[in-house]
Write a protein that binds this DNA or RNA. Sequence first.
DNA 1: CCGAACACTTAACAGTGTTAACTCACCTGA
DNA 2: TCAGGTGAGTTAACACTGTTAAGTGTTCGG
Lengths: 205, 205
Amino acid sequence: MGTLERRARARDTIRTRILDAARDLFVQNGIEAVTMRAIAKRIEYTPTTIYHHFRDKHALLVDLCQRDMGSLVQAFQRIGRIEDPADRLRRLGMAYVDFAVDYPSHYRFIFMTPKPPLLTDEDTTAVDENAYLILLATVRDGIAAGRYRPEFDDDQQLAQLAWGALHGIVSLQILKADEAWIDWRDVRETARAMIDLMMRGILLE
Amino acid sequence: MGTLERRARARDTIRTRILDAARDLFVQNGIEAVTMRAIAKRIEYTPTTIYHHFRDKHALLVDLCQRDMGSLVQAFQRIGRIEDPADRLRRLGMAYVDFAVDYPSHYRFIFMTPKPPLLTDEDTTAVDENAYLILLATVRDGIAAGRYRPEFDDDQQLAQLAWGALHGIVSLQILKADEAWIDWRDVRETARAMIDLMMRGILLE
DNA sequence: CCGAACACTTAACAGTGTTAACTCACCTGA
DNA sequence: TCAGGTGAGTTAACACTGTTAAGTGTTCGG
């Protein structure tokens, strides 16, 4: 009586169909195109059906992003194994920027959209948290190895400084790319210049 | 027959009453608390009335922010008269961060909220544009004065780099200040460290 | 004194996320 | 075989957005 499994499989199928439809709208027309009715129409179901598979819209988008951010997580974990802390830090920065450029909608939802107040679910630590922990460990290793100038002895501050610098460059680009009064430079090159500047600024000698 | 003036004055009165009500909701409960009905209720008018004084909600918020950002504009213009380009640049950065910390709702609306598509009015150049131009001129002066390392010869890129770095630090703070898994450092101090790091990185010698 | 301009309201439209109540097919246990 | 429950799916609605067409007076100018 594998009927239970079959049920579970069917449930998974419709779940991923919902997620696929949501992703299409998400990456093609931006987050504001993702409405429950639009998703439902695309998979030829009723909006209510979605609520049998996801608690609410926010949970759906969180689930979608957590799945899709696998590339960022993998990159971070791979880079996390690099020996040299300074080299590791530099590469984490580039991977972060690459992800933001490749998946602007995902980036915008995870890093640029406020969460609904107090409905923050305490599920398994989210991808942004994991990424921050890897960054933090990398910064700490560099400090412990005595690679950085003595004024950068606060791992939290240094991590927040590095994260903020790159987040600002990519998020400004995502938000204001079509503002005509700015002669935008290539975001990857600007980010690289930022990383070079930071590394030279914090490294000893 | 000063009746025309009186009319205009009355019009201005109700206009500012609307703006005041909107600002209260805006700064106290955040931008999501600003609904047309909430504003109307607070001044004991009908929502429709607001539309006789503002084209739509976005125009209302833009008007509100343009007025309130006078402090930022004044600070930028005052700093813009400082002789030394490097000192000017450093102070612009601090003033920018101060504004973001003091007026988080305004900052969020101007620098962290996407504009409604293609309804971008070509009104008198907005405050963010003015601020960017002052920053750009400051960067350019520093380059022209030969104060910066030769690899920073692109004024646009350097301006976008500096803006992005500080924008990232303050916007992360505004958005994720209540995420428990980050041990946030004081945003002004982090920003100051960022500015010091950048200045040391781009200045010659 | 009449007509137009003007401030304002009523009532509605179209869209959003969300939910209570129902139908109906299917599987389980007697 | 058949009662009953489980659960996927739908219908219809609620409460809330921003926004607007149409109507009501009041006030002013010729």
